[in-house]
Design a protein around this nucleic acid. Structure first.
Lengths: 117, 117
DNA sequence: CTAACAAGTTACTTAATGTAATCAAATTTA
DNA sequence: TAAATTTGATTACATTAAGTAACTTGTTAG
């Protein structure tokens, strides 16, 4: 009978627990970024980055500013709502450094013998 | 070139941003729970709950205790690693109450006229 | 014997994600 | 003038993850 005692918390959880959303917000906590900056900062595809940014814009977590230079420059930045997530990500950083231990499988681009066969 | 500057943070994000994982941990922060308790506390299927609990057990975030009563009772609880996520969820609760505003679509089981046709 | 309960598992459908090619606009370059 | 670049996307298609419902195992109550 899933009571979901708090719909606000549920919605926040839905937002955060959508793939890539957290990493995108974390990137923008370091200041405004352009599409290609975010794309090259994590292994996300253009398709999903575009989709996620649109969702975050609709939630008023991210703002999209168009600079009609040449070539056009579009900057993504956090709104107040987005910036307010800063402490949460600081907390996740803290937890990860205290409790996560890495094994070989956690190094995403490890160069091992097999790669050079 | 996704540098992923911190593999520990990346892994923490992967854990948290997997569907249901956050809600399961949040449930267990209120004390040990059995399979059917968790299942009925959120709209997750037995299939996925079983899968997620196994993953969390492997990450040593959740502990599984078997009580050979009749019928058998199995209790899931948080380890120290899991309990250490408490502040993070407190922070998410805080953020959600400050910034999330609900519209009709966010009430999961709203009873509207159409349901009674 | 039949039903019920807890904690799953299996088979199958649907939705989300990954991959790669392509697009439009405005220049630069050849 | 035609081809090539650059940015911020979008489309088509393959793969993976998630949702749904029926079934399993072991035990006990009726």
């Amino acid at each position: 009978m899933h009571d979901s005692m708090c719909p606000k918390f549920d919605k926040a959880m839905q937002l955060i627990s959508k793939r890539w959303t957290g990493l995108i917000i974390h990137q923008l906590l370091n200041g405004p970024k352009r599409f290609c900056n975010i794309e090259s900062a994590m292994p996300i595809s253009g398709r999903l980055l575009s989709e996620r940014l649109k969702e975050l814009e609709q939630e008023r977590i991210v703002r999209r500013d168009v600079y009609p230079e040449t070539p056009v420059r579009i900057e993504y930045s956090l709104t107040g709502k987005g910036l307010a997530l800063g402490p949460l990500f600081k907390e996740l950083e803290h937890w990860s450094h205290e409790w996560i231990e890495l094994d070989e499988a956690d190094f995403p681009e490890a160069i091992v013998a097999e790669d050079r066969v």
